[in-house]
C-alpha cells in the first residue's frame, strides 16, 4: 500500500475575491486519524469537495493511492476506495436503512448494469448490508425509511454506508455535528475501530473528540495551513490558540 494514502500538493481554489484554498499541502498516512480543524469559513468543506471531486481546484494536484485523481469524477474516486460522509446527512430518503446500505454493497460488488435479477433476492448482499448496519447499531431500524430516522441515526447510517464501501480512506465531514453526548461517545468508539480498516481524514468541531482521536491535527484558516502537528503541539501553539481556540493573545 502506497504511503501516504492521500497526498495534496499546492492546491488552490478561488471563488471571486475569496481564496478558499491557498497553496495547501496535506497528507493522510496509513493507519492514522488526521483531524482538520479551523473556524467557520476556513475552507474545510471546500477542501473535502476537491478531494471527493465535487469541485475542481484551480491549481494543484491530489493523489490517492499513488495515482493522480485531480480530474476524476466523484464516482470514479469512490470506486477507487474513497468513502465520505456528508456534513448534512445525504441519504436515499425513500429507501429503508437496509436498502441504503444495500445500494453501497451493490455498487462495490459489481456492475449496476444488471437488468433482470432482483437485487433483494441476493442473500449474500443482504447479509453483508445487515452486518454493516449491526456495526453501527442500527439493526433494529433496518426496515425503517431513512426519512423516518432521527438526526443521530442518520449520522450512524452515513457511517454504515461509508463502511460498506470497504474503502482505502475515509473522509468524514463533521460526523458528530448535532449529536447528543451519548451518540458522540458511541461514534468515538466506532471511529477507533474504523481506523483499523483505513485512515481517516476527520473534520470536526468537537475539540474533546478531536483531541481524543487524532494522531495529527492540521489547522486551517483563510484557506491555508497555519499549523500542523501532533495533539500536544497544536494544543500549545500560540497562533492556533488565538485563531481558533479562543484564547486572548
Amino acid at each position: 500500500m502506497p504511503n501516504p494514502i492521500i497526498e495534496i500538493t499546492d492546491l488552490n481554489k478561488r471563488f471571486g475575491a475569496i481564496q478558499a484554498t491557498h497553496d495547501l499541502n496535506l497528507t493522510l498516512n496509513v493507519g492514522e486519524i488526521h483531524a482538520l480543524i479551523g473556524p467557520n469559513g476556513a475552507g474545510k468543506s471546500t477542501l473535502i469537495k476537491q478531494i471527493t471531486g465535487y469541485l475542481q481546484p484551480d491549481q494543484g494536484e491530489i493523489q490517492f493511492l499513488g495515482q493522480t485523481i485531480t480530474q476524476m469524477s466523484p464516482a470514479s474516486r469512490a470506486r477507487m476506495g474513497l468513502a465520505q460522509t456528508f456534513q448534512v446527512s445525504s441519504l436515499i430518503m425513500e429507501y429503508s436503512c437496509l436498502d441504503n446500505v444495500l445500494l453501497v454493497v451493490q455498487a462495490r460488488s459489481g456492475s449496476s448494469f444488471s437488468f433482470f435479477v432482483a437485487v433483494r433476492d441476493d442473500a449474500n448482499l443482504i447479509q453483508q448490508a445487515q452486518d454493516f448496519l449491526q456495526q453501527v447499531g442500527l439493526s433494529d431500524r433496518q426496515h425503517l425509511r431513512a426519512s423516518a430516522l432521527s438526526h443521530g441515526e442518520r449520522r450512524q447510517l452515513e457511517i454504515a454506508m461509508a463502511l460498506a464501501l470497504e474503502p482505502k480512506a475515509f473522509l468524514l465531514d463533521e460526523p458528530m455535528a448535532g449529536m447528543d453526548p451519548a451518540g458522540v461517545k458511541q461514534l468515538i468508539e466506532s471511529l477507533k475501530t474504523m481506523r483499523e480498516q483505513a485512515p481517516i481524514l476527520l473534520i470536526e468541531h468537537d475539540m474533546a473528540a478531536v483531541f481524543e482521536l487524532a494522531d495529527r491535527i492540521t489547522v486551517l484558516d483563510y484557506g491555508r495551513v497555519i499549523a500542523s502537528g501532533d495533539v500536544e503541539s497544536i494544543r500549545n501553539n500560540k497562533q492556533v490558540q488565538v485563531a481558533y481556540l479562543g484564547v486572548a493573545s
Binding site: 469512490a78 441519504l91 436515499i92 444495500l102 445500494l103 437485487v119
Partner: peptide, 25 residues
Amino acid sequence: NSRFGNALQALRQNETRVAAIGISP
C-alpha cells in the same frame, strides 16, 4: 427490482449520494 433499477431509483432521490458510493449517474 434489479441492480439497475435500484441505482436508477436512488439517483432520482439523491444524485450526489449515488455518485459518492461509486455509481456514475
